[in-house]
């Protein structure tokens, strides 16, 4: 790394921030070891997370597995499926709108003469790209939880608030990443297609789209992973995904069930990671 005053200042600022954060007294490290908290921890680890039917009889693997299978069959399986489905519908919606918006936000596509370097962009086109970009910033700057709160108040309880909240937030992210990919295209080939008489729609759909699609799908699967994570958590707002049962067990203080559903959540996140890694590997080979 080069010696650079801004890098050094930033490093010093960050170090200062870390030192400040540990010393300003907001982090109650000392309180962690009070008698009450220790007792709380002992109760949690020693009793509460032990599966309910095993508390009297002591641990046995068969007892544990029948308890886990029962939970999985009665609620877990359905909740896992719902979590996956919410994430998949949300990311599909986000992908479609994000792809459309990434072309509308790309400054090289939205100009009087698309993908050609000469000529002014034109005031109307400049206004369009600026407006779409501002919209994308807004969509992704508001956290998905806020969207979910708002949509829940608007639509009432169903899977839609979670789906739309994830779709809106991710459309903002995919739109931004997609627009960057479109702007990174080699415009000489595209300008050549224009020379042959292709209209704006033809050059966008038949020439530019195939060129960015591979990269866009990479982002799509990367965001799918995140969507599964967030879909789990958004259930805590009342949609019947895994988070719903986590919150349910938490409010009843059934900590054995809560830990079970958290672990189940970890498993499906792992499954989504593997699926996404496989899809991205396949895409890379297709290129």
């Amino acid at each position: 790394m080069k010696r650079d005053w801004w890098l050094r200042t930033s490093l010093a600022l960050l170090l200062g921030l870390v030192v400040y954060s540990w010393t300003c007294g907001e982090i109650e490290l000392g309180q962690l070891f009070t008698e009450q908290r220790q007792a709380n921890l002992r109760r949690f680890a020693g009793e509460e997370i032990v599966p309910y039917p095993l508390r009297e009889t002591g641990f046995s693997f068969s007892g544990w597995s029948s308890w886990a299978m029962e939970l999985f069959r009665s609620r877990g399986a359905q909740a896992c499926l719902a979590t996956f489905a919410i994430a998949w519908v949300a990311i599909s919606l986000a992908g479609m709108t994000g792809l459309l918006m990434s072309f509308l936000a790309a400054r090289n596509a939205m100009r009087a003469r698309p993908f050609e370097s000469q000529g002014a962009p034109g005031a109307g086109f400049r206004a369009l790209t600026t407006a779409v970009r501002a919209l994308l910033v807004f969509l992704r700057a508001v956290p998905e939880y806020i969207w979910a709160f708002l949509l829940l108040a608007m639509l009432g309880p169903s899977a839609w608030p979670a789906i739309l909240a994830l779709a809106i937030h991710n459309a903002g992210i995919l739109g931004k990443l997609g627009a960057e990919s479109v702007e990174a295209l080699d415009t000489r080939t595209l300008a050549a297609v224009r020379e042959l008489g292709a209209s704006r729609g033809q050059v966008s759909v038949l020439a530019a789209l195939p060129l960015v699609l591979g990269r866009f799908l990479m982002y799509f699967f990367y965001r799918f992973e995140t969507c599964v994570r967030e879909a789990t958590v958004l259930g805590m707002l009342g949609v019947v995904s895994l988070g719903y049962w986590i919150q349910d067990a938490r409010s009843k203080q059934y900590y054995d069930e809560m830990v079970f559903f958290v672990a189940l959540g970890a498993l499906i996140v792992l499954a989504a990671d593997l699926l996404s890694a496989w899809a991205r590997g396949t895409l890379r080979r297709m290129r």
């Binding site: 907001e26 982090i27 109650e28 009450q36 908290r37 709380n40 921890l41």
Partner: peptide
Amino acid sequence: AAFGLNTF
């Protein structure tokens, strides 16, 4: 659940 509300 394990510690109660503690900023750590």
